[in-house]
Simulated assay, not measured.
Amino acid sequence: MSETGAKVIPFALDGQDEGPERQVGRFDLAQAVRIAEAIVFASAEPVSRKTLDARLPDGADVDAVMEEVRRQYQSRGVNLVRVGDAWAFRTAGDLSFLMSRDAVQQKKLSRAALEVLAIIAYHQPVTRAEIEEIRGVETSKGTIDTLMESSWIRMRGRRRTPGRPVTYGTTDAFLDHFGLEEIRDLPGIDELKGAGLLSPRMPSNFAVPQPPSDLDLLADDEDELTDIDLEELGLLTPRVTED
Rank of each mutant, 00 (worst) to 15 (best):
M148R: 13
Q23H: 12
E182Q: 14
I120G: 01
V40R: 02
Q124K: 05
E132M: 03
I228F: 08
A129C: 06
V81A: 04
R71C: 02
R71V: 02
M1F: 07
E68L: 03
A32N: 05
S213K: 12
S48N: 06
T170L: 11
S150D: 04
R34S: 15
R101W: 09
E224N: 05
G196I: 07
Y73F: 05
L197T: 05
E138S: 11
F41Y: 10
V69P: 01
N79A: 01
V116P: 00
V137P: 00
D216T: 11
S151H: 12
D220V: 12
A121H: 01
R70V: 00
T237A: 11
A113K: 00
K107E: 14
E232K: 13
S110R: 05
V78C: 09
Q23D: 13
M155Q: 15
D176P: 01
A44W: 07
A219R: 05
S213I: 06
R71K: 11
L218R: 09
L109Q: 08
S213G: 08
M1G: 12
S48R: 11
T237D: 12
D227N: 14
M202Q: 09
D63H: 09
R128D: 01
A195D: 12
G136Y: 03
L230G: 03
L233N: 04
R160M: 14
P209S: 05
R111E: 13
R128V: 03
E182H: 12
A38G: 11
S75G: 02
D145S: 08
T170F: 04
H177V: 10
T91H: 07
N79M: 02
S140G: 02
R154C: 09
K108C: 04
D102T: 12
N79E: 07
E130D: 13
T161N: 09
Q31E: 14
P212E: 06
I144T: 07
I39L: 12
Q31A: 10
A36C: 07
A113M: 03
G136Q: 07
V166A: 05
T139M: 03
P10Y: 10
F206Q: 00
G5C: 10
M202C: 06
E182V: 11
T143E: 01
L56G: 02
R34K: 15
W152E: 09
I131T: 03
E232V: 07
R26G: 03
A60S: 15
F27S: 13
D221R: 04
L175M: 12
I183E: 02
P209G: 06
I189H: 06
P209Q: 08
T241R: 15
R164H: 09
L147W: 03
A207S: 14
D61E: 13
P162K: 13
E67M: 08
D172P: 00
L236C: 07
F89D: 05
I153T: 03
Q16W: 12
E3R: 14
F11K: 15
P57N: 10
E182G: 10
A219H: 06
Q74D: 14
R135Q: 09
G142S: 10
A12D: 08
R160C: 08
I120R: 00
K141A: 14
